[in-house]
Write a protein that binds this DNA or RNA. Structure first.
Length: 468
RNA sequence: GGCGACGUAGCCAAGUGGUAAGGCAGAGGACUGCAAAUCCUUCACCCCCGGUUCGAAUCCGGGCGUCGCCUCCA
């Protein structure tokens, strides 16, 4: 099934470990999705693109991947934002789920196997809380329900810090009613006018953390293979999920905890509350989504990545380098030399590149390394194609590039674009002028087309055009 | 203060013991009628100071600097 041994870094054990799913051939992944109260920014999408790339790679390696990513469609921020806009919470959720899907699709993020919403799983959430109450791991307080952290000895194992240690530097407002400052809310009673669901403890809504525990269990069972999220979710979110799930089920919630490092902007984490965000919907107006994705994959996922527009622009240039190579291959294919073996050492190099590409991603999803392999091939292919246009060389290079790009979620098949008849005529006119050595006229036509966004390139196999 | 990361070329970024991948930008050359694209060449005292080792960007100790988390966070 898989010839490559995959290693993943696990936050819980703080080491790279060989990846072995619970059930051979099948991988269950739960990723914490967005709260849909606003346009998602490029930092949010770093995580989603990484999750998507992981899924694509695992499928390439022959696994069936059950990828579940939720939408948080009810919480304090949702209510506040809905009030500000004067719309209902469900309408707000619909709007930004649609926006998320549009942005995600543009970036090549495939729809998950399931994308459940918190509001659609209130019964499961209530059942989970009842279980925790019955086990003595939670308590009711004036219509709210809290998790009793003190009764879960493993609390702190993911973030590697006990509640006591945390308290030392605490600058949190402690709710004096709670038994312990570290206790967190499972069920939150609602105020008049707020969306609410009936429960044994009165009308209210789920706490943030419990929805993921309930939905992960609902769709993927007691233990998922990979639980993923941003690094900022390690504490409290994932720590609390562990307490809720493992406290009730007495089984590990996840076999591997995967956390994506933050995207920074002007020296600090990009986040809505700091006001230093670039919404993806806005960035997409200036850069091609494939460039944005290439940029997001340019650094290893556990390394902080600084966002600057010039870096996306640099990725766009890099992307064009790959595109030029693909265009050259397509242009060359009709002129390919058939019935020749092709440069054997190059073809062997290509096979080695395939293994290197795969090995890079197998090593804790090292996308930066994988990109380097891709660019190596582009350079070597361009050099080889100068002297060798064997069909095997062209086709196998093309297959490598397309497959590798697909694994990274980058689709460059723009479709066969047709030029207008007038442009075709101008190109033909220019060719005639060149034949007649009327270079002034030829250059005039080339300049005119350039102004119209069409770049001409003269090759041994005839003139080639591209958008530029 | 606690916990966790990070510091590699002008910029971005791989590399975790055998003397530095890749991309962007720059310089020179080749190709071209000229271009474009492409190729070749060129561009690194691996934050500092000690230590371990035949050998350290990589391991250990100590500095300096940056970032994240410490109950909104991808």
């Amino acid at each position: 099934m898989t010839s490559t041994s995959i290693r993943l870094y696990d936050t819980l054990t703080q080491q790279k470990r060989p990846f072995v799913p619970l059930e051979p051939g099948r991988v269950r992944v739960y990723a914490c999705g967005p709260t849909v109260y606003h346009h998602l920014h490029i930092g949010n999408f770093r995580s989603f693109v990484i999750f998507d790339t992981l899924g694509r790679f695992l499928r390439r390696e022959g696994f069936e991947v059950q990828f579940v990513q939720n939408f948080t469609d009810i919480d304090d921020k949702m209510i506040q934002r809905a009030n500000e806009l004067g719309v209902g919470v469900p309408d707000l959720a619909e709007q930004f789920i649609a926006q998320y899907r549009e942005d995600a699709a543009a970036l090549g993020v495939e729809p998950p196997y399931e994308s459940p919403r918190a509001t659609e799983h209130v019964p499961e959430i209530i059942a989970h809380i009842e279980g925790l109450l019955a086990a003595g791991l939670a308590y009711v307080l004036e219509g709210d329900v809290y998790f009793r952290v003190g009764s879960f000895p493993d609390y702190g194992k993911l973030s590697h810090e006990s509640p006591d240690e945390r308290l030392a530097g605490a600058r949190i407002e402690v709710d004096q009613r709670k038994e312990d400052p570290a206790d967190f809310v499972l069920w939150k009673s609602s105020r008049p006018g707020e969306p609410s669901w009936p429960s044994p403890w009165g009308p209210g809504r789920p706490g943030w953390h419990i929805e993921c525990s309930a939905m992960a269990h609902c769709y993927l069972g007691d233990t998922v293979d990979i639980h993923a999220g941003g690094m900022d979710l390690i504490f409290p979110h994932h720590e609390n999920e562990i307490a809720q799930s493992e406290g009730l089920l007495h089984k590990p919630l996840a076999r591997y905890w995967m956390h994506v490092a933050m995207l920074t902007m002007d020296g600090s984490k990009m986040s809505k509350s700091q006001g230093n965000i670039v919404p993806l919907s806005e960035l997409r107006q200036h850069y091609r989504p494939q460039s944005i994705r290439l940029f997001l994959l340019s650094a290893h996922y556990r390394t902080p990545l600084a966002f600057r527009e010039e870096l996306v622009a640099a990725s766009q240039s890099a992307l064009e380098r790959i595109e030029n190579c693909l265009a050259r291959l397509d242009h060359l294919l009709p002129h390919a030399a058939r019935d020749v073996r092709g440069d054997q050492s190059y073809l062997e190099r290509l096979e080695r590149a395939e293994r290197e590409f795969e090995a890079a991603l197998a090593d804790d999803l090292n996308t930066a390394q994988a990109q380097a392999v891709l660019f190596d091939v582009v350079r070597e292919a361009n050099a080889t194609l100068d002297v060798d246009t064997a069909q095997t060389v062209i086709e196998r290079t093309r297959n490598f590039l397309v497959d590798s790009l697909a694994t990274m979620g980058i689709d460059l098949s723009g479709g066969e674009e047709q030029l207008g008849a007038d442009v075709d005529r101008l190109i033909a006119d220019r060719e005639r002028a060149r034949q007649a050595k009327d270079y002034a006229q030829a250059d005039r036509i080339r300049d005119e087309l350039r102004d119209r966004g069409i770049v001409l390139e003269d090759t041994p196999q005839g003139v080639r055009w591209r958008r530029g």
